[in-house]
Design a protein around this nucleic acid. Structure first.
Lengths: 139, 139
DNA sequence: AATATTTTGCAACAATGTTGCATTGCATTA
DNA sequence: TAATGCAATGCAACATTGTTGCAAAATATT
């Protein structure tokens, strides 16, 4: 992680509040992606559900985190790397979701191969979503 | 489309009912993918919401339709081609969702490039989700 | 046509997400 | 560092989406 918590919030012109610090910290401590429910549980009853929703929204808008499409259409969020900027997220991104444990990985070092589209289609974002068994769940 | 409506239902050992016929017909008439809401609107007040949910579930289980992961995590369904079988869906699939009109296309003829994963990861399904502007929305 | 099986609709509920508004907390400036 | 302005929070209420149990209706089977 290149920036600290307070630093990241300041850089994005966000007030430094307890909920934002805690939620951002949670993302920085977590290797994979988080669902809203994960955050709600892990932060206890400390914050209102609405605050968590709004915080996640804000983080997405600022390009601090991004949403991950999953095969089961559950909403998950993960920290963005540097190439993310507000509004415009990663153009290429491989995500892996384990069918067994549900952990979602950002495989940033895996190269997304170029896809050739029919004429008339313009690409703004390519997501590769892989489901399967992760290294911790293979026996 | 290779099979007719009644034929498809029979083949999958499903009773032929009004809701199933109507919903399957809707999918066959539609080029892109459908969200639950689309189906609810297009079939009017004819069927109960619950019936639509259950019909979609059944179709997914039988391999008649499949769900499509989208960048905005909305749930969409589309007809499966022949290679789909119950439980085991397409291994490779490119979907395109237009940011402008929301239409979701199954680009079956577009080849999904192989992705090399780190050791210990086993793949069961690869989805490529592309967002952008479709051929009807480019000016 | 009669019976067995499946599917449907209703009601109730659970989970997820959104909005408005008063209160609280943060940041700014003097 | 105290006072002020602005932004974020919590609460309540609501909207949407999805699920479950069960009696009634429709379909399939004999």
């Amino acid at each position: 992680m290149l920036y600290g918590i307070a630093e990241t919030l300041k850089k994005n012109q966000l007030s430094i509040t307890d909920s934002r610090k805690k939620i951002l910290e949670l993302f920085m401590r977590t290797n994979g992606a988080l669902a809203h429910a994960d955050i709600e549980h892990q932060s206890g009853t400390e914050f209102d559900r609405v605050t968590i929703y709004r915080t996640l929204q804000t983080f997405v808008e600022k390009g601090i985190i991004h949403t991950i499409p999953t095969a089961d259409n559950s909403v998950r969020y993960a920290l963005c790397k540097d190439q993310c900027s507000a509004g415009k997220h990663h153009d290429d991104h491989v995500h892996f979701m384990c069918d067994a444990c549900g952990t979602t990985y950002c495989l940033d070092h895996v190269v997304v191969p170029a896809v050739v589209l029919p004429k008339g289609f313009t690409v703004t974002q390519t997501d590769v979503v892989i489901s399967g068994t992760c290294k911790n769940c293979v026996q």
